[in-house]
Design a protein around this nucleic acid. Structure first.
Lengths: 191, 191
DNA sequence: GAGTGACCGAAAATGGTTTTTGGTCAATCA
DNA sequence: TGATTGACCAAAAACCATTTTCGGTCACTC
């Protein structure tokens, strides 16, 4: 059996997207990196977009794996939540491809990269939504709309982690957990 | 006493900024609209930016006036809060100049327009911060960092009002108030 | 028949030229 | 004589014709 050309292509493309971003990686470059003719790419993927989509799928799967690693059923919902969200933020910063996407969206607004980031966000929301459903069942949370609750928790976490520091002292992980607990678990009504 | 040229200029500039945005209004145009020579503008404002800044000051002052109008000391903190925030959102949509700024930032990212919107946001945060301080004093809220709390409340409100509808059914004003009450007043911990 | 790379049209980058624009200031009022 | 003006300037932006790049195809090769 000959070498797996498909894998060669996907690996080369992953590397190129991570290094140069979506817009700046060319199909010629991917072909050369993979050591295959350009035409060969098009026997596996009909367009550059489709190739990118597959790679984004893998990225999302990987993030899910990492999130699962962080989850500990022995801990409370909010503890797990803030650890998972913190880990996801970290992933976005440290993982080469994810980081490049963020940068490309910020600096050039490439539509396809934006779409990719949106898919990641939707996947994260879906993931948290499930965890919320479980927490509600286990009685760790009041009954609530899991979709809406996921949205609130994720948006708030990201706003605190990325926008708050723009005009204030950054919050460390523990403060974030405390804030989440006091504002969202207990509420800020007196008593 | 001759006509108030300064006012002529400010009015003309306000109209032009509202109609064409920051980038697309030229000092020549403002001069012509105001019916004065271009040089005259520079006897009152050293740069286009300074002229714009003064107009933004007026806008912010006006928003504050509108917010104050919405405030009713007889109502609860959360009721006032969500009515004020809803009114501010509405203002940004309906007020010609504010609306044009939002559009210009979205479509072209004009730095000076972005700065203007940031100033508005900071002013709003400051305004809410004061209201929170009062509410804490009156015992309507637990003691908390008013700056942080204002950030959380405003960010969450705007996310729910502008981002949530992108992939969900929009929330009407009453739902928003309910959400705020149940998530932030009472918290989502059981009991 | 799997694999390739020369080739194609469309889109984007390039760069040199023209136009616009924020800001100045000598001339001109009043 | 101090307020007002608009021709003027340099720098930035807009334009536009030309070239280059790039995603995708397909006749050819092995």
């Amino acid at each position: 059996m000959s070498i797996d050309r498909r894998k060669l292509i996907v690996d080369a493309a992953t590397q190129s997207f991570a290094l140069y971003g979506y817009k700046a990686t060319t199909m010629d470059q991917v072909a050369k990196l993979a050591g295959v003719g350009k035409g060969t790419i098009y026997t596996f993927f009909t367009t550059k977009e489709e190739l990118f989509d597959e790679i984004m799928n893998s990225l999302i799967q990987d993030m899910k794996r990492v999130a699962d690693q962080e989850y500990d059923p022995g801990r409370t919902f909010f503890d797990n939540l803030s650890r998972i969200l913190s880990r996801m933020l970290d992933y976005r910063e440290k993982h080469q491809l994810a980081h490049k996407m963020v940068q490309e969206v910020r600096d050039m607004g490439t539509p396809k990269a934006t779409e990719g980031l949106n898919r990641i966000e939707r996947a994260l929301l879906g993931y948290i939504e499930v965890k919320i459903g479980t927490a509600v069942e286990k009685g760790e949370l009041k009954p609530c709309d899991p979709g809406l609750t996921a949205f609130i928790l994720v948006k708030l976490y990201f706003a605190l982690a990325t926008e708050w520091p723009k005009s204030n002292e950054p919050l460390d992980k523990e403060s974030m957990t405390d804030i989440f607990r006091s504002y969202l678990m207990d509420g800020i009504a007196p008593q």
